[in-house]
Amino acid sequence: MTNLAIAANGLRKSYGDKVVLDGIDLAVPEGTIFALLGPNGAGKTTTVQILSTLIPADGGSVRVAGHDLTGNPDDVRGAIGVTGQYSAVDKLLTGEENLLLMADLKHLSRADGKRRAAELLERFDLVEAARKPASTYSGGMQRRLDLAMTLVGDPRLIFLDEPTTGLDPRSRREMWRIVRELVAGGVTIFLTTQYLEEADQLADRIVLLDHGRLIAEGTAEELKRRIPGGHIELTFTDPHLLDAARGLLPAGVADPEALTLQVPSDGGVRSIRELLARLDQNDIDIDAMSVHTPDLDDVFLTLTGQQKEKEATR
């Protein structure tokens, strides 16, 4: 059995009447990337703030890095590193000074601190900017410095709250590379993101958070399988052919305007071949065909959509 870096049961938080987290359970195994995915306002940042000891939960039991969150917050703090949504660097200090500040606060010796700072500047491609104030850094550089500061104390568990929000595509890919390297070194990552692609790219496990509740959990593959997002889209040249195809394939959804029929399918070669054979046998010509395999967008939109319907009927 693997150890859990985070084990949360029935985590709750409200601000006044507004329920932000409505009893969520989390189990994050050590050495994995765990993604908390959700739209703005779903409660992602609140979750990170609670797990990283910034704010207290209203209810629930949580162990982080083996320590009880309410009983031993200081031990939790000693084990974690947090890179938040807003860059947590001292903009008036230089990059190097920021790193040395962290080394001092982690109670490293002067020599160790200097060595660690130099290492991290090198690794995060900040050597040239080391002696410039952080206020002069670009967004991507500030984010890299931010993460470098988090790494000074070699935390075993790192919280990344929307680490790539607002970054350009190149900086985003750079950040992904760094995250993968960290996990290869045995670190556990708790990631929040509103980008499905990011969760798909990085995470071992994904949970979907919407309105303070977990609405799905699994690997990216498992989640994609959970919803019928995959389909084959057939386009016809004439409405009669569309009608004929509709009669043959009652599961399909027709769009008479566009002359298309969406037939649910897993998108596999065998099912495509069967479909085409049936159309052929019935002399139904198709003009064009496209295969749509489900991605996390489908999962996300379907599940958050269902959630909304449920809420509307309540």
Binding site: S52, T53, V82, Q85, Y86, A88, V89, T150
Partner: peptide, 8 residues
């Protein structure tokens, strides 16, 4: 954000 960092 630096203060939030100090708090964690």
């Amino acid at each position: 954000g630096i203060i939030a960092r100090f708090r964690t």
